[in-house]
Design a protein around this nucleic acid. Sequence first.
DNA 1: TTATAATTGTCTAATTATGACAAGTCTAAA
DNA 2: TTTAGACTTGTCATAATTAGACAATTATAA
Lengths: 101, 101
Amino acid sequence: MANQFGTKIKQLREANHLFQREIASALNTDTPMLSKIERGERKAKKEQVPLFEKILKVKKHELLTLWLADQVLELVSNEPVALKAIDLAQREIKGLTLNRS
Amino acid sequence: MANQFGTKIKQLREANHLFQREIASALNTDTPMLSKIERGERKAKKEQVPLFEKILKVKKHELLTLWLADQVLELVSNEPVALKAIDLAQREIKGLTLNRS
DNA sequence: TTATAATTGTCTAATTATGACAAGTCTAAA
DNA sequence: TTTAGACTTGTCATAATTAGACAATTATAA
């Protein structure tokens, strides 16, 4: 349920003609773990996200965005007030971020 | 940083002329814990949120919304792509929720 | 001061997450 | 029909995180 990150990883891996083994070793882990990450059974560690971005040749923060969205979804997706909560958080960030780009 | 829930709890507690002790005992915890929750040093357990709502006489889900927003903020608030990630999650929920009210 | 409310700090226990690995399935080539 | 490679599944010990309990401290006001 809600696995944008893993789905994308797998897509990109196949597009780049890589085996799980190759990515796994670059991340210092094994293929069972990568398999689980792709299927959303386990989550990638945050520190691994930039490594994925590098190996899979996507631009910085692209996968981070998906990874974060997954975490947010895991948190709220079964809640009756999910959208309200997200909206509140969003307003808060916009408020706290007035000084940025 | 980002403690909408705790802040609101405290406000409501004072408005209702309650001491931490009274709320704490109703939640089966102690005042140090409640103090920490109010100040955002610890987070309330999700199961406690409806108890707060009852004791503090606010309508169902009102505090849950704040509680969830805090969790979301904790997750994304320091990220460069915070807003993008939230936006993605939001779209996803809207997609998955077409069939609801 | 004394009493009450609230906060701070710390320590153990409970819970949850992670890593590692054995064993399994699946597919295709021989 | 067996061999090999890619991937998946299941389990389990351990690491890491979080919670609960409580003593001690601070703050405030009578």
